[in-house]
Design a protein around this nucleic acid. Sequence first.
DNA 1: CAATATACGGAACGCTGTTCCGTTTGCCAA
DNA 2: TTGGCAAACGGAACAGCGTTCCGTATATTG
Lengths: 234, 234
Amino acid sequence: MADIDSDIDSDIDSDIDSGSGPPAPRKRADARRNEETLLDAASAAFVASGVDVPVRDIAARAGVGVGTIYRHFPTRADLIVAVYRHQVEACAEAGPALLASSGTPHAALARWIDLFVDFLVTKHGLAEALQSNDAAFATLHAYFLDRLLPVCARLLDAAAAAGEILPGVDAYHLLRGVGNLCVGAETDPRYDARRMVALLVAGLRLHRREAARRETAAARPAGASSPPEQSQAM
Amino acid sequence: MADIDSDIDSDIDSDIDSGSGPPAPRKRADARRNEETLLDAASAAFVASGVDVPVRDIAARAGVGVGTIYRHFPTRADLIVAVYRHQVEACAEAGPALLASSGTPHAALARWIDLFVDFLVTKHGLAEALQSNDAAFATLHAYFLDRLLPVCARLLDAAAAAGEILPGVDAYHLLRGVGNLCVGAETDPRYDARRMVALLVAGLRLHRREAARRETAAARPAGASSPPEQSQAM
DNA sequence: CAATATACGGAACGCTGTTCCGTTTGCCAA
DNA sequence: TTGGCAAACGGAACAGCGTTCCGTATATTG
């Protein structure tokens, strides 16, 4: 499975007057240099010690003071987003492509989730950070949701429209569930997150029997309709 | 759904010479009193601020110094285990009971997992602590596994033997997956862990079509047997 | 009522994230 | 080229955490 590209941002100051807002008074040269250095250092530090590596370590790697980090990236989430921006973007863009190239919408969904899982699982502590409700990670949360939620929703809708999965599962739940299942995937050799995710994805498939039941239920007056199998677990 | 009992240990020093090992020279009265006070304080603090409440807060609640906590409970995990021991025990004991009383093994499994999820979801941060690979939580991990893994395995085996679920899913994976799905269930109102767990449990069901395919595959020479639907996601 | 082992309290240490300000440095205009 | 100033830097300093350690207090026992 081809993984998403993993090079580092090089278009840091590419917002040179995009036409809207205040003129953006152009940053100093050393500032731009440091920002790039910091991204490299952070990327390396994340690989070595996870995304929750001490700020001082990143600063030391980059050869700057801690103040410089906070000036460029007010929260840790901003730094994480900057480091993984390209990969998240690639994952988002892969969604529509998979929908077009895959046999069925469900296959596309499964493949896309695979991509997402591969990404999460190979970044120490990213999954953990994503579910953390620490205020420092709010930006991270927001960014991932902003980029990936629409993609996931579209795949989900397509699969539901094709009658392959049961409707009513929203993208947020799925994304969050998948993210949750990835927690600890790297540190625990006994645990295989991919397998559990596959089970989850399998769980939302609509099977012949359920589909039939669902149709007869739809024909009857709505209300106490008995939802499919997994509801017996509630 | 009846939840597990939630009273606090009162048989702290019930190991008064159980016959084995060194004579256990009987603790001082104030020590026993403090241990109980600490359990109460910790229980209250966990409810108020989650299981990762600062040690000092627990100490303040109990009216003791932090040293006293560490003397009684060397690691935070020991304290957590002590507080929730009864409930975990009850959950473990409910397994065989459910297997006997429920219609099918799969129903028993689903109900038991419900019990487990209800327990996890109502304890702030417990799920998070369970997957944390922080060394401080090793005891917690070990205890939960020790008590719940055999129960889960037995339910799983029963369901597999009845042909209701696909074999080859081991109890550790399931327990861990369910635990993972419970992370953040309390703090994120948009997320419904129970629903995702239900999906996961549904995912391991063996359906008519798959069962048939599985049988023909078993009849053929083993090796490149194509596993059921969810494998297309791998 | 001593003597002593046991347990207690909380100061102290080390490691975090985060802020803040004196100092340095790039930039531009004179 | 140079002077001045805004921008950026570095790291000391602060606050909050877990954990350790030891002088002090106290329950127990003879």
